[in-house]
Design a protein around this nucleic acid. Structure first.
Length: 616
RNA sequence: CAGGGCGUAGCUCAGUUUGGUAGAGCACCUGCUUUGGGAGCAGGAUGUCGCAGGUUCAAAUCCUGUCGCCCUGACCA
């Protein structure tokens, strides 16, 4: 057996300008445990393929080994992120995964994060958390290290393993308990102006677009929940793919896109007046026992869910100032979903589902509540979605007594304004947007839906953490100011999985050149044929000289096995060295994304051909 | 957390209803043949049937408990 020298050892002499030389790996000397069948527990494409192609192995629920191929790909994602973060003015550092729980108690996140925070206790009984993100840790560092406004602005980031005790890990790398994340934090004295938060936020926005574009991903930027500063203070970067966990809505005219929970809905006409020429209908009570779900009730009453009013009994969230309001009834059409965030914006304070016991005591027939329940209930607010505030329609709704519903409900007749609730009736957008709703940005346009996978999120934090942790600096006029912060995350391991999710076929993964563990795979048909083996080594060396990473499949396997595995692991270019092609004066060249068997390319042209193909 | 499903060889699974010697295909090892899309023949190795109790002459199979994993939902900076 001959000893193979490592051809990628860099020269000992140092040079300030380096052209990266590619790396060469032999399959027989690494481990790529491909599987013919996908393990039964994998159901999503990226999970199945990453397992089958020998990239990952499960260690526990939501915990995975990153095997050599996956780690190479992850490093490529990380390197792209580093370059863009550095270009955007960031400095990389590394904080610990372990952090004392007291830090999270300072900001209240020990409570807010709840069971999602991984907790452990060391031998001394010290309570410790495994970091889910590092706002507290970095703020703790900087409140000691930064004392003057002259040290700001500052952007710091790290690429690190993060921990979340997910209630239900799923879909392989897409929702893990342990995962790799890039988290960045920026610090400012002001929101606007040079060196302000908005500058850094915009720079990050551009950097994120660059990162995902360079990764070869098809993505959409969506507006997410507004932060404490207002405006569009948060954006999510969603990879477009059908299997994505999130539904996003998009205005085809303006490019406005938002998460389904956050999406605004355009103007909708409404009126409680019944109008002229409407046939009078009588209010009729119906016995509707044991009918869980609005569809069943609607079927029994011979109406559609869209012909019903759904009433949710809500209460002000614990500890908020509701101005004396004790109950909030949220009314939407039966086929719509109440959005608690929108209700909060409409009423001006945070709300939660009402406590069932207390609601019953207050006289609400839970499950059979109608808008009329607001009458006679003191301190009860009524919030109605425009689609439900249609006075010209006769509605089906609850009868406000157990096991009964009514039909023929007319707003103007059956629910006149309640003296006890005077001024407490409000019409507002309080439901989740859906396909076909009017665009909030363009009259006449309708929202369309697409599925997405969140791989990045940028956020204007404001001074939430700096105030809670006492991080302030002296400004020019010698006034102490809380530092204003932004935070910016990218799921590194999730980005890799999202790429597989987005780009594969029935035979395996199809990597974009930027994230592929190796740019090219050389399939050696006869590894024990010295001439062939020597050619493979020479070709790999030439490719490496051109900056390409190369995997040589030198296993003693049948051709079929090697071709199947090559398709499965998905390197962008496949070069086959076999007698057939050699007799024709070259090697067989085939891009992974192309159909067919490839073509013979002369030896002196192969490198150029590979480079051209990868640059596409 | 609620509902459902699964745990038997490295992988996919049969066997559990009706208790009676632990199975198949693929993978693995050896030899021969074969060599451009998951080969053929011959031989070989492989298991605390998730774990712990219980019932029984006898438990993968029945009972009780427990752990793990998956799916749907709730949840998700």
């Amino acid at each position: 057996m001959t000893i193979q020298t490592n051809q990628t050892t860099p020269h000992a002499s140092w040079s300030p300008v380096t052209t990266r030389r590619g790396e060469v790996t032999r399959w027989s000397r690494t481990i790529i445990p491909t599987l013919r069948d996908a393990p039964a527990e994998a159901t999503t494409p990226s999970h199945q393929l990453l397992l089958r192609a020998g990239y990952i192995r499960q260690v526990a629920a939501g915990v995975y080994d990153y095997l050599p191929l996956a780690w190479r790909s992850l490093r490529k994602v990380s390197e792209i992120i580093r370059e863009e973060m550095n270009a955007a003015g960031g400095s990389e550092l590394l904080m610990p995964a372990l952090a004392p729980i007291e830090l999270f108690e300072e900001t209240g996140r020990a409570q807010d994060y709840g069971d999602d925070l991984f907790r452990l206790e060391d031998r001394h009984g010290r309570r410790t958390a495994l970091g889910p993100t590092h706002e507290e840790v970095i703020t703790d560092f900087l409140r000691h290290a930064v004392t003057s406004y002259r040290q700001l602005p500052l952007t710091l980031y790290q690429i690190q393993t993060k921990f979340r005790d997910e209630p239900r890990p799923r879909a392989g790398l897409l929702r893990c308990r342990e995962f790799i994340m890039k988290d960045a934090y920026s610090f400012h004295l002001t929101v606007d102006g040079p060196g302000g938060l908005n500058d850094a936020y915009d720079a990050m926005y551009r950097a994120y677009c660059n990162v995902f574009r360079r990764c070869g991903l098809d993505f959409t930027v969506v507006e997410a929940e507004s932060g404490p500063i207002g405006g569009s203070a948060s954006h999510e970067f969603m990879v477009n793919c059908e299997t994505g966990e999130d539904t996003i809505l998009r205005c085809p005219e303006t490019g406005y896109a938002a998460n389904v929970e956050k999406c605004e809905i355009g103007e909708r006409p409404w009126s409680f007046e019944s109008g002229a020429g409407v046939q009078p209908v009588t209010l009729q009570k119906h016995h509707t026992p044991d009918m869980p779900g609005i569809d069943i009730v609607a079927g029994h009453l011979r109406v559609t869910p869209a012909g019903m009013l759904k009433t949710l009994v809500l209460q002000p969230a614990a500890g908020v100032n509701s101005g004396g309001v004790k109950w909030v009834l949220a009314i939407v059409r039966g086929d719509h979903e109440v959005n608690l965030g929108k209700v909060r914006d409409a009423v001006g304070f945070k709300v939660a589902l009402g406590d069932e016991k207390a609601a019953r005591q207050a006289g609400f027939a839970i499950g059979y509540v109608s808008p009329r329940a607001a009458r006679g209930t003191p301190n009860c607010m009524l919030v109605v979605d425009p689609d439900a505030a249609q006075g010209a329609s006769a509605w089906a709704t609850g009868a406000d007594e157990p096991d009964h519903h009514v039909t023929g409900f007319v707003w103007s007749r059956d629910c006149p304004d309640n003296p006890a609730s005077a001024g407490y009736v409000k019409v507002a957008d309080i439901r989740n947007a859906q396909v076909g709703d009017p665009s909030p940005r363009c009259t006449g346009a309708r929202l369309v839906a697409q599925r997405g996978l969140e791989t990045g999120h940028i956020f204007k934090l404001g001074s939430k953490y700096s105030v809670a942790m006492g991080f302030s600096v002296m400004d020019e006029s010698q006034v102490r100011q809380p530092v204003i912060m932004g935070c910016y995350g990218i799921g590194v391991s999730r980005t890799m999985a999202a790429c597989v999710e987005m780009s594969h076929d029935e035979n395996g993964i199809i990597w974009p050149a930027a994230l592929a563990p190796y740019h090219a795979e050389i399939v050696l048909m006869k590894p024990d044929e010295p001439v062939h083996a020597a050619l493979a080594e020479r070709l790999a060396g030439d490719l490496a000289d051109a900056g390409l990473d190369v995997l040589i499949d030198d296993r003693e396997e049948r051709p079929g096995v090697k071709f199947k595995d090559a398709d499965l692991i998905g390197m962008p270019v496949r070069l086959t060295i076999g007698q057939k092609a050699l007799d024709a004066g070259g090697v067989e060249f085939k891009p992974r994304a192309d159909e067919g068997k490839g073509e013979v390319v002369g030896l002196d042209l192969v490198v150029g051909r590979c480079l051209a193909s990868l640059a596409r």
